[in-house]
Amino acid sequence: MAAAAATAVVGVALIFAFVLQTAWPVLTRVGIAQFIFGDTWYPTRGRFGLLPLVAGSAALLLGALLLGAPAGVMTAIFLSEYCPKRLASLLRPAIDLLAGIPSVIYGFFGLISIVPIVRSVFGGAGFGPVAGSLILAVMILPTITSVSRDALEAVPRDYRLGGLALGATQWRTVYDVVVPSAWSGIVTSVVLGVGRAVGETMAVLMVIGNAPRFPRAAGQPISALTSQVALDMAYASGDHRTALFGIAALLLFITMGLVGVGRLTVRRQARQGRRR
């Protein structure tokens, strides 16, 4: 039993050890700062600068959050506060299904539906940050919605009744009482959404055009950390291959950071709960 439980620990240790050990040569030769902040990714000519990819990932994340986070939280508010019971029992599984659709299907949908729309609205190739952000926004929405909804539904009924009894409208009660009480859960949901957006590979790979350049226009190809790994893995060798492990190491540290932020929020919530 304990051995089975330890497998998870061994797995994580193995991944970290293996990725870091393989990435080490390129990190020491190029230098960590030069690796992350170098402005050119041209691996076949020995240029291993991640900044264009970091900028691409950041642009996608920003766009996805700007659209997906408010929509996700609002949908959660709708489900827990406004939605009739019977409709909610229909919508819940629908949102879960949205979370279960394989990312390659989102990518395919983006490729055939969203890219042409972006092309005709913004010009250019259509592949790029806007198409990627739109698809990612749809993909993080169910995560944000279901975790936020759980947090909102955990707020005691008395809080709402108290707000209403003081003469506040329903929206005032939701906005000033319910949402603040569920705040740490909502933050956690967005952190999880960030994790999903940063780590998403296939859907992004299929709609951003995959050119490792800084994002400049809505419909111009860019690249991201994850999709670049997927793309180069097929043929990379030597320093190029170790550089991909360097990207994987960076992604692992981002993941660790997000897990840390998530735990901090949960702990703070627990402390606040005791104080009440």
């Binding site: 304990a2 439980a5 330890a6 998870a8 620990v9 797995g11 994580v12 240790a13 991944i15 293996f18 990725v19 994790g195 940063v198 780590g199 998403e200 590979t201 994850t226 999709s227 790994v229 997927a230 893995m233 991909l244 492990f245 994987a248 992604l251 692992l252 993941t255 660790m256 997000l258 897990v259 998530g262 735990r263």
Partner: peptide, 23 residues
Amino acid sequence: LTRLVRFAADTLAGVPSIVFGLF
């Protein structure tokens, strides 16, 4: 051990799938 397992599971849950693929 359980605290470590939980932390490991949380981390594993957040690791991007392409990193699993590369590994």
